[in-house]
C-alpha cells in the first residue's frame, strides 16, 4: 500500500464509475498498473464493492422504509460485542451496524418494505436475542443527504458564464 493506492482509493470512494483509463491518467500511472492495483485492493477487501446511490422516491417502485435502532446489549464474556453484532449483521434486512459510544451500544440501520415489516423484525428477531436488553426504533422520515450526496433537488445549473477571462 503506497501513496498511489491511497490516492486511487480516495478517488474511487467518491467516483466509483471512472474507467481504469481515466483513473490511470488522473494519478499518472499506466492503465494496466491501475487495473492490477484495483484487483489487489479488491482481493484484500480494502475495496469491498461498488454501488450506486439511488433516490427511490423518484421511481415507480415504493420507497423502502428505513429505521435506525438503538440497541443496548450485554457483551459476552471473551467476545465482547462481536458475537451479538455478528448475529445481527447477518440479517439481510440490516443495511448497517455500528458499535457506538454513549447511551446505547449498537446502532442498527434496517430497511424494509413497510413499518410493520420493520416492527416485526424488531420484536421477533432483534428483541428476542438473548443479549439484547432494549431497543429504541427511529424511523427515517426524509433523506436529505446520504453518503456525501444531497438527495434534495437543488438547482444544479452551472452558474458560471460560458466564457470568461
Amino acid at each position: 500500500m503506497d501513496e498511489k493506492d491511497v490516492e486511487l482509493l480516495s478517488i474511487v470512494e467518491e467516483q466509483g464509475r471512472l474507467s481504469e483509463d481515466q483513473l490511470a491518467k488522473m494519478i499518472a500511472l499506466p492503465a494496466d498498473e491501475v487495473t492490477k492495483r484495483l484487483r489487489c485492493l479488491e482481493k484484500d477487501n480494502v475495496i469491498l464493492g461498488y454501488s450506486a446511490l439511488v433516490d427511490w422516491s423518484k421511481t415507480e417502485k415504493a420507497e423502502p422504509v428505513t429505521a435506525a435502532i438503538d440497541v443496548k446489549v450485554t457483551p459476552t464474556r471473551g467476545r465482547g460485542f462481536d458475537e451479538v453484532a455478528e448475529r445481527i449483521y447477518r440479517y439481510h434486512e440490516v443495511k448497517a451496524l455500528y458499535l457506538m459510544s454513549g447511551t446505547y451500544d449498537l446502532s442498527v440501520v434496517i430497511e424494509g418494505e413497510s413499518m410493520s415489516e420493520i416492527a416485526r423484525f424488531v420484536s421477533e428477531k432483534l428483541s428476542t436475542l438473548e443479549s439484547v436488553i432494549s431497543t429504541t426504533t427511529h424511523f427515517q422520515l426524509k433523506r436529505y443527504k446520504h453518503d456525501g450526496f444531497i438527495f434534495v433537488d437543488e438547482d444544479d445549473q452551472d452558474p458560471r458564464m460560458v466564457v470568461s477571462p
Binding site: 452551472d158 452558474p159 458560471r160 458564464m161 460560458v162 466564457v163 470568461s164 477571462p165
Partner: peptide, 27 residues
C-alpha cells in the same frame, strides 16, 4: 477584451461543453 466577442457567440448556443471558463467549478 477579445474574449467578449467570443463570449457572445458561445452564449448564443445551447448544449455546449464549456472549457472556456476562467473560474473554479466549485461554489
Amino acid at each position: 477584451s477579445g474574449i467578449r466577442r467570443f463570449f457572445d457567440l458561445a452564449a448564443s448556443m445551447d448544449n455546449i461543453i464549456s472549457l472556456g471558463v476562467g473560474e473554479p467549478d466549485y461554489s
